[in-house]
Amino acid sequence: MNYAQLLFPDFSLIAIGWLLCRYTALDRRVWDQVESLVYYFLFPVLLFHSIVRSPLDFGATSSLLTAGVGVGVCGIVLAYALPFVPGLRTHIDRRDHAASAQIAFRFNSFICLALAERLGGSEGLLLIAVLIGVCVPIFNIAAVWPMTRHAQTGFVRQLVRNPLIVATVAGLLANVLGLTVPTWATPTLTRIGAASLALGLLAAGAGMKFSTLGAGKVLAVSVLAIRHLLLPLVAWVLARALRLDAAQGAVLMAFSAVPTASSAYVLAARMGYNGPYVAGLVTLSTLLGVVSLPFALALPR
């Protein structure tokens, strides 16, 4: 499998966004509006439709769900703990940490779907759909919490007002209740989802400033090491401990090693944090996926 080719569309869109913002008339005034459109409309529609369109069979995938949630919880705990680790805490800016902790445990759903289909066909797609449906609400809440805590704003109030949280929870409830999207609406929602992915990556590129990464090297290395090294190892241990079958094991390993979510930048920027720094981490994570995916899938199961 050519991982570089799989990840190239994401990386190229980030690069195009960076070039457009700096060398054309499409400057920051344009991209601020694009970020708002993505955050308040396009990404919520994408998340809702992604979760609703595939039925969630919790019984048949209980071991996979346990492992997937376990991987995510480990990522969340490790990311949250970084400012308290001796030797690291004096080099980590707490505000930048609040915005970038999400890089360590969130995942790119579209890359997950593409990988799952190649690894397991229709069965792989069903398995990853269950993981996405359960993990996206948990991970989005975990992404918002450090930022609301640092800003000392009401956590519950921020949750109920956050469009990404509302969309994912609504999608999960609709799926559990057996509600489906009408056939006539599916093409429109699919196109909105494709637009959200493209514009989100372009906006991440437009907001990126490489100089911000140099000011937070320790934090950057730490969250990316969790995302692309430690989580694949945690997934490998859980896959063996829970005795996942070949298809479930492959999906879990891919899930643990994919690049972080492109919406991480939009979330940080819209909540008033260091968007350019998070955009740089999204770019580096996309590049590191070329290494972490073959590493994770090559681990013996």
Rank of each mutant, 00 (worst) to 15 (best):
V73N: 10
P146Y: 07
L64Q: 02
F139Y: 09
L119C: 12
Q102K: 10
V38H: 09
A250Y: 04
V251Q: 02
L197E: 00
L172Q: 09
A114K: 06
G59T: 06
W18T: 01
A220C: 06
G171K: 08
V218G: 06
L131M: 14
D93T: 10
P83T: 09
G72R: 09
A279G: 00
R243H: 05
Y40N: 06
N140H: 07
V71T: 09
G133V: 08
I111G: 12
A298H: 12
D93N: 13
A298T: 10
A250P: 02
G154V: 06
T153W: 11
L125N: 11
E117N: 07
A269C: 06
L113G: 00
P9L: 12
A220Q: 09
M271D: 05
A99S: 15
L297V: 11
L26F: 01
L7G: 14
G120D: 05
L199P: 02
A151P: 03
L126R: 15
F295I: 08
P9I: 15
A194V: 03
A203V: 04
R22E: 03
S222E: 13
L159V: 14
A247K: 06
T212K: 02
L281Y: 00
Y3L: 15
M271T: 08
V166D: 13
A79S: 12
L37H: 06
F58P: 03
L213Q: 02
A129E: 04
I76M: 08
A235V: 03
L179S: 13
L7S: 14
H150G: 05
A261G: 15
L126V: 14
L7Y: 13
F84K: 15
H91S: 11
D10N: 00
A98W: 12
L19P: 07
V30W: 11
A203E: 02
A203K: 09
H97I: 12
C74Q: 07
L299T: 13
M1R: 10
Y273S: 10
A101K: 10
D32W: 02
A185C: 07
I165T: 03
S222V: 07
A195P: 02
T188G: 15
T283W: 06
L179P: 02
E117C: 03
G154L: 01
V85Q: 00
F8W: 12
P187Y: 12
V218A: 15
L64Y: 04
V144W: 05
D10W: 11
V160F: 00
L230R: 02
V251Y: 01
P259V: 00
Q248D: 08
L173D: 01
L179I: 08
A185V: 04
W236I: 05
G193S: 14
